[in-house]
Structures are given as C-alpha cells and as structure tokens.
Computed example of a mutant assay.
Amino acid sequence: MTAQPAFSPALLADVVALTAAMCDIESVSGNEKALADAIEATLAAHAPHLDVVRDGDAIVARTHLGRAQRVVIAGHIDTVPVNGNLPTTRAVGPDGEQLLVGRGTVDMTGGCAVALALACRLPEPAVDVTFVWYDHEEVEAHLNGLGRLARTRPELLTADFAVLGEPSNGAVEGGCNGTLRADITTRGRRAHSARSWMGVNAIHAAAPILERLAAYEPATVTVDGLDYREGLNAVGISGGVAGNVIPDACTVTVNYRFAPSRTVADAEAHVRALVDGLDVEVTVTDFAPGARPGLDAPLAQRFMTAVGGAPAPKYGWTDVARFSELGIPAVNYGPGDPSLAHADDERVPIEQIRTVERGLTAWLSASI
C-alpha cells in the first residue's frame, strides 16, 4: 500500500483547504489509518520542533520548551459513516455565507485541521502544547482513542488546561452534560392471545412508565455560571413474542442527560425515583459523567480573553469529561453547528474555521 503523503505547505497555510483535504481522506471509525498516516507524515515533514508519539491511530505531538504551563489541543479524526457526502464541496448558504459541505466538516475535522496547521506553524508558542488527534470517538466508549491514552499513557496528556475542537459554532462551550442509559423492564405471563385473560401483558404494564416520562419536566441547572438543560426520555422500547402470544416482558430504554454538578450515582437515583412504586426492574446499561465548565481556571480566563465572546454550556457529552476525570479543566471550541453533526448535509461556515484559527493563534501567541 502506498504511504499517505504529507499535506503540502500550501494546504497548511489555508485551513479551509486543509479541512477539505483531510475530510476527503475517508476516516469512518475503524478506518482512520490513512488520515492518521497523513497527519504523522505532515508532522515529520513540517514540525521538527515537536516530539511525536503514535499509539494505534492516535497521534500525540508535544513541544518541550520549558514553559511554566502546558495545554492540550485535541480532536478525534474519525467520522460516522459516509452517505454520498464525500468528497467535500463548496456551497453558498441562503444568506450568502460560504460553506464547506461533506462528512466530517462539522464533526470534527475542521477543528483537527486547525490544530494541525498551528502545530506546524507555531514552533514557539507562549505555553508548551500537546496536540492530540485520536481515533474511535464515534463508536463504543471502550474503543475511544483518548480514553485508551488516558488508561495506558496518561503521562502524554499531562496539562494545566485542554481545548477540545468539538463543534461549538466557533464559540466556547464549557464542560458538558453527563449521560446515563437504563433499561426499565416490566414482567408478565405468557398466554395465547385468544385467552388473554390467562396471561399478564407486560407491554400494557409499561404504560405507566411512558406516562411518567411524558409528564416529566426536565430541570435547568446552573453550574459555575452556565445553565445546563437536562433531559430524560424514552429512546427505545422492545417486547413481544409472536402475533398470537401475550408478552411476558417489555423493556423501555431511557436516556438521562444530566447536569455536570450531578454524579453518576445521583443520575441513577434520579431515574429510579421516576419509577418508584412501579413493579419494574431498572438496569443501568451505560453511563459517562459530565464535566464542570472549568472556566474559573486562570488559563481558561486568559483563553476567553484571547478568543472573545461569552461561554455557553455544552449539552451533549464530549471528551472534555475525560480531561475532567484527569483533573484537567477543559472546554469545547471548534467550528460547526453541533446540530448538523452526523447529518447527511453536514456543512460548516468557512468563516467559522478561520475564526477558530485566529482565536487559537492569538491565545497560543499571547504572553500567558
């Protein structure tokens, strides 16, 4: 197989063109190798000032300038599956806005392209910088490349502050909500549907669960000055044996998005309280804690001064929570509307890519 070439100096000088070139190297989760190879080759060719470590398809590149503080700039290089939306194209929005369209433009190759350009372009930033491009973010959590690094090479992630290039409309989104999924199961007794009175219908018994979920009013919780909107919803329901059998089991799957001030134990207790008094079984199947904004850290305050604007909360879960677990304050800051992530018409305003480039350049070049 032909080695993936490095991106050219001309591409590194134009983050929009670089974003398009990176997106056009298809990198659906599990197939990140070609893009990882190109990033590694680019660093070797254009960033001799960086110490580069590769771990699978994750790449860590670090300065060693003896600065008093170190920051991480990170992003995942994988995408959800392509659906006729590569190669990238250019378009004009209804208001005349210039757009880059295609898989990965929002989630989150634009942020990764900015990081790669700055890694090559800024040999002497004001702080030591660790750049991380990692694999397998869009799939099961145990495969996540950043999580793998945190477990097996935590020394590579040591820092005082982190910026994750997740899409945030070119503005700062602090922390993130946590997430918990649980199966709520009712039990019944099978019988022939012609003699239904001899059985107990588990699907019918699930009705009170759905009624409580429909009536549920989610909270808005203020954490460190940011308002996090919660949500508790049914996201799946399963049950039934055959078309002539009264079902003996029904499971409602719920997803609770909870404010970062709550622990996972708090979240589980909240879900169990919702169905208190019902004859059900509750099994937690997946969870990830949230992350507080971390905007009170001095580096975060200087970051906000450099990039400008007012911070907002991140409602969806992101890998800032992994940095939070390591004791590293972290924020989301990247181009793209997060509501367009994974959409077939995924598209990013070109100016947002340049905005993030200018913001990070100003921050890394400032006297900190």
Rank of each mutant, 00 (worst) to 15 (best):
V71P: 13
M22C: 15
G96I: 01
G199W: 05
A10M: 02
H142P: 00
F323S: 08
L118W: 01
I353H: 03
E268L: 07
I368S: 14
D183K: 05
V264L: 03
L278S: 05
F7E: 10
R103H: 08
A207C: 10
A267N: 07
F258N: 11
R190H: 04
F161V: 11
A13E: 03
N332H: 06
G102T: 07
G309E: 06
R212C: 06
T220R: 09
T88D: 02
A343C: 14
R257I: 04
R292W: 02
V252L: 10
V271H: 02
L18C: 06
L43I: 08
D344E: 14
N83M: 13
M22I: 12
N255L: 06
R195V: 13
L18H: 01
N177L: 03
E211S: 15
L180Q: 07
T253R: 07
V331M: 03
I328G: 05
P125C: 11
A259S: 13
A234S: 04
F161A: 11
G188V: 00
G178H: 06
N83R: 15
A17N: 05
A288L: 12
P9G: 07
R212M: 04
I209P: 08
R103G: 13
V101G: 10
Q352F: 07
S367F: 08
I184D: 01
E140S: 09
R148M: 07
Y256C: 05
T179M: 09
P167K: 04
P293E: 07
G231Y: 06
V264K: 06
M22A: 14
D276A: 15
N177W: 06
A366K: 00
V235D: 03
A242M: 04
P167E: 02
N233D: 14
L210F: 11
R121D: 14
A366R: 02
D128I: 02
E211Q: 15
R212P: 07
R153P: 11
I328V: 11
D279S: 07
G110A: 06
L65M: 13
R229D: 14
Y333A: 03
T152K: 01
T179W: 00
L146K: 05
T186P: 06
I353Q: 10
V200Y: 05
L116S: 02
G243V: 04
I77K: 00
T19Q: 03
D266Y: 02
P218R: 01
N233C: 11
V254E: 00
R272D: 02
G334D: 04
M198S: 15
V282K: 10
E166L: 00
D227N: 13
E124H: 15
D57V: 10
A113C: 08
R322K: 12
A214I: 01
P349N: 05
H142C: 13
D95S: 14
T220E: 15
A206F: 04
